[in-house]
Design a protein around this nucleic acid. Structure first.
Lengths: 239, 239
DNA sequence: AACATAATCGGATAGTTATCCGGATGTCAA
DNA sequence: TTGACATCCGGATAACTATCCGATTATGTT
């Protein structure tokens, strides 16, 4: 490890036992974690996503490869950690922020706002997220972030479309936001984020009841919310 | 999709280049290609997709790794070649087969039929296709098969929804059919193909069989039974 | 039948991901 | 302060993808 002088060894643990089952992690571990993340972010910023490899990060951070893998599991995990702050901000916004992203606006509006916000996030991180996606084709769906987004959309869709298969539709709405597809659209086909958002609006507008807010395109044609064939004959089986 | 590194350069053949369009490949090359494909299919069938590696295929086929890479480009290319026959059958069906998949049925119906047919294909090959997708996150969109599907859907959507962004919507409808997501739904969440098809029907139903947007006031009088249970779409859609 | 040429073959090599486990070190208790 | 032990470190190692290029061989011509 490093020769860093021992940190203040005070900290007798006399403090209040923090509310969050805080596991006592070794000081060198947290130090390394922080350094690894900083190095990773720096590599991406200065040399691009393709230069971000576990070996490279480990070498630059002055630790062994094993350390990086133990801390983050795999490349996707490392990338997830790098994006953690940004992701947390997004979650904060749609869970407790101002409408239409946060609570207060009608569900269909919130769905649209969420998709738009996610597009903005993709515009900043898509190349990096695409690498994470490619690590394991099913990996995207295992990550905690995806689960949170899915639950959020499922809830909103359930409210806006009582008879629909909210669980599946949430995945279907998240699918066009795959980083790989976004990169393809944005960087290889030159689509603007506005166009992408408008396209998503078309889908949401058609699927959920049209909302009052008029943005680009789609006119809130009547399309009333009907009950629809409730069951659909498929036993709802959520894990 | 035969996505081979088209080699053969122009030769001054005076003979009629009609009938056999394929000629300039060395006998051992075609022999090796065939053997490699057979071996690859066999490995997948007997030992599963995880056992399918370029090294393994090369060794089993009795050729060098370089040969496999030259012929198929990468793992995704090899997988594409293995699936070529099945893919060709699908293309044949929606380009010149019987309605509603083939020409003759109203566009929205054909879109739905295509998605259903693709789900059936996924049910057989998703694990394999997921590996191909993971090879390169943007790889799926470069392959010839994707391009064909995209063109097809773009055309149909353009007919069914004159004012919409058919190009983007085609990608968006194809996105939920990503092999990785399908595997997640089918093998990890236990969803049935019927449920997946019904979910896709909901999306298509809302997007394409409702009153058109913009000025072209289609007096459809709202009410669109967004795709009910698999099959039975809305019969009010004449050519 | 022998030749010239271009295309193919296939092993060596480089770069990555991911795992393993003996050794080093921090943390807590006495 | 000292000691015991759980945890962490990090290099060695295995497997895989992908590229390169000299050696090999098929093909059409003379």
């Amino acid at each position: 490890m490093s020769r860093e002088p021992a940190r203040r060894r005070g900290r007798r643990r006399l403090d209040l036992p923090v509310a969050g089952a805080e596991r006592p992690r070794r000081a060198d571990a947290v130090r390394n974690r922080g350094r690894i993340l900083a190095i990773a972010a720096d590599i991406v910023a200065t040399r691009g996503v393709t230069a971000l490899t576990m070996n490279e990060v480990a070498a630059a951070a002055g630790v062994g490869v094993g350390t990086v893998y133990r801390r983050f599991g795999d490349l996707a995990g490392l990338i997830g950690a790098v994006m953690d702050e940004r992701e947390s901000r997004l979650q904060e916004s749609f869970m407790a922020g101002a409408p239409p992203l946060g609570p207060g606006a009608p569900p269909a509006e919130r769905v649209r706002a969420f998709l738009h916000a996610y597009v903005d996030l993709l515009d900043d991180y898509a190349p990096l997220m695409a690498v994470a996606e490619a690590t394991s084709s099913t990996g995207r769906f295992r990550g905690g972030a995806y689960a949170v987004h899915h639950v959020h959309l499922t809830t909103l869709i359930g409210e806006a479309l009582p008879g629909g298969d909210a669980h599946y539709l949430a995945d279907a709405l998240l699918a066009p936001l795959a980083a790989g597809l976004f990169v393809h659209h944005r960087h290889e086909r030159g689509m603007s984020t506005e166009r992408i958002k408008a396209g998503l609006d078309e889908i949401v507008g058609g699927l959920l009841t049209a909302a009052p807010r008029t943005a680009s395109g789609r006119a809130g044609s009547g399309r009333s919310p009907r009950g629809g064939p409730a069951g659909r004959g498929e036993p709802d089986q959520r894990a």
